[in-house]
Design a protein around this nucleic acid. Structure first.
Lengths: 115, 115
DNA sequence: ATCATATATGCAGCATTATGCATATTATGC
DNA sequence: GCATAATATGCATAATGCTGCATATATGAT
């Protein structure tokens, strides 16, 4: 029983032990985000991002919802944000890459507003 | 710079992602402990425990001090205990295995006192 | 000096995982 | 229906890490 507890926790930590996944989680604690946004932020191939999202999803760490063509991911457990705050500090502003094709990065001419 | 931050954190989480190391850290947040105590608690070969301790030590997560033949390890950063509390809950009583040869498990006839 | 105990280190085989690539699925617009 | 865009999945291989074993060092006792 105690051993199972450790097993469970190590699996959780394992998810955090790779920078792509950690970066995804860090981004998600700011706000939910669609795959194409995460793809832009990470600067990695779509397939790769999607694969990491699957890992996180199957572990129950993130959840997703579909909106038209887009799939939005979000953190699924407040503990995750808690852990991230300890190691990464307070959450900052949402990342707004200039070349991101996603609606949230393009609404309200937000790109123009970026310095 | 931001990338380096993630790198650093993933390395930390990686340390937590294996049950032997996690168990060591969990044990250490109760109190400092000598290698032979950890060895008994984990039920693993001495060489193995020693190796994991080295990994933790080189990462700066634990520190050690020598007392005669024994080497005592302790947590080196309060953040570690903080993280563990989130995922493992409040720290419990120190583990006192009946067959542990270490002085702290044998002082004051503490073994007899165990039910 | 010799022996026993506690701890540390180096190395190698095995298992696990990461990463990239090709392709499948699903939704939208025409 | 077809084309396109967003996302997901499967697979192969390269990389990484676990784990056990043999051995080294250091301390204390006789």
């Amino acid at each position: 029983m105690t051993e199972d507890k450790y097993q469970q926790v190590t699996q959780l930590f394992h998810l955090f032990s790779q920078s792509a996944r950690l970066q995804i989680l860090d981004e998600l604690r700011r706000d939910e985000a669609c795959v194409c946004h995460l793809q832009t932020v990470l600067g990695r191939p779509q397939a790769y991002v999607s694969q990491q999202l699957r890992v996180l999803r199957e572990a129950g760490v993130v959840a997703n919802r579909k909106d038209g063509q887009l799939v939005y991911y979000r953190l699924n457990d407040p503990k995750i944000a808690q852990l991230l705050e300890i190691v990464l500090g307070q959450v900052g502003a949402r990342t707004h890459p200039p070349d991101c094709p996603c609606p949230r990065c393009n609404c309200c001419d937000s790109n123009v507003l970026r310095e």
